[in-house]
């Protein structure tokens, strides 16, 4: 008999796949795998790694929830939910006091406003434009010949901030190269990049008309200078996230699948 307590959530995102295994309200397995253009493979790899970490076999999973851009490519039966509902559910589970969450993902920015029950009151996603997304950060790091993880410490130590208008992710890169050629310090360019992304995020938040507590999720949060800049722009303290910032949508998908099965 299947262990009805274990649930699996898979968030097949634009750039990476995130999988969690939940047992009795605790995350016992979690994995992030880059898609690298092979989505189905990434989903399979990510799932088996998360199961391995949880020391659970797929047969022992009671409920499976799937979400994200690549949800329809998940090659095993699952309950499909929208990334918005999954994010809201996951955030409400992890941070019940949060009323607004902004997810800075690989290719999209999503703002969700939720009530105390975790119900979605309002949501917005970005225009069809990659400026300010994870894709932009990766492009920017590449232009600076840095690893993505190197941007943040540099930005935090920067005495100055270069102006990056980042109206467009593609031309943002040539803007960065311009700064480099002008002799601008890499640290101040890194700081400019963080600010530009935060500024775009602030615009999305203001468009919705957000209320605290405010949480930021998604891969971009791993660059904490973006979060700092966002706090500076919107004048609101961002909640300290208690999980991996890329984890909660998958958690939400698992929870929703389990709750559906109990109805």
């Amino acid at each position: 008999m299947k262990n009805m307590q274990a649930s699996l959530g898979c968030d097949a995102g634009a750039m990476s796949t995130k999988t969690v295994v939940l047992m009795d309200g605790t995350v016992i397995g979690f994995d992030i795998t880059r898609n690298e253009g092979r989505l189905v493979q990434a989903i399979e790899d990510s799932t088996s790694r998360a199961l391995e970490m949880a020391k659970v076999t797929i047969e022992e999973i009671g409920n499976v929830g799937g979400t994200g851009w690549g949800e329809r490519y998940i090659p095993f039966p699952h309950l499909s939910t929208s990334a918005i509902s999954a994010l809201a559910r996951g955030v409400n589970w992890a941070h019940p006091g949060v009323r607004t969450v902004i997810d800075l993902g690989g290719l999209s920015t999503t703002v969700v406003v939720l009530n105390e029950d975790g119900r979605v009151l309002e949501y917005r996603t970005n225009d069809r434009c990659a400026a300010g997304t994870g894709f932009f950060i990766e492009q920017a790091a590449q232009a600076l010949e840095l690893g993505v993880e190197e941007l943040c410490p540099l930005a935090q130590a920067a005495p100055e901030r270069a102006r990056i208008s980042a109206q467009c992710a593609v031309f943002g890169e040539s803007e960065i190269v311009s700064h480099l050629n002008e002799g601008e310090a890499v640290s101040s360019i890194s700081s400019g990049i963080a600010y530009a992304i935060a500024s775009g995020a602030a615009t999305m938040l203001n468009r919705v008309g957000f209320e605290p507590d405010l949480l930021v999720t998604g891969g971009v949060v791993k660059n904490s200078s973006v979060v700092k800049a966002l706090e500076e722009i919107v004048g609101v303290k961002v909640e300290e996230i208690r999980f991996d910032p890329q984890e909660l949508t998958a958690v939400g998908a698992a929870l929703l699948a389990r709750e559906k099965s109990l109805e």
Partner: peptide, 8 residues
């Protein structure tokens, strides 16, 4: 409109 991407 704002000065940016001067290199290009």
């Amino acid at each position: 409109y704002m000065l940016s991407d001067i290199g290009r």
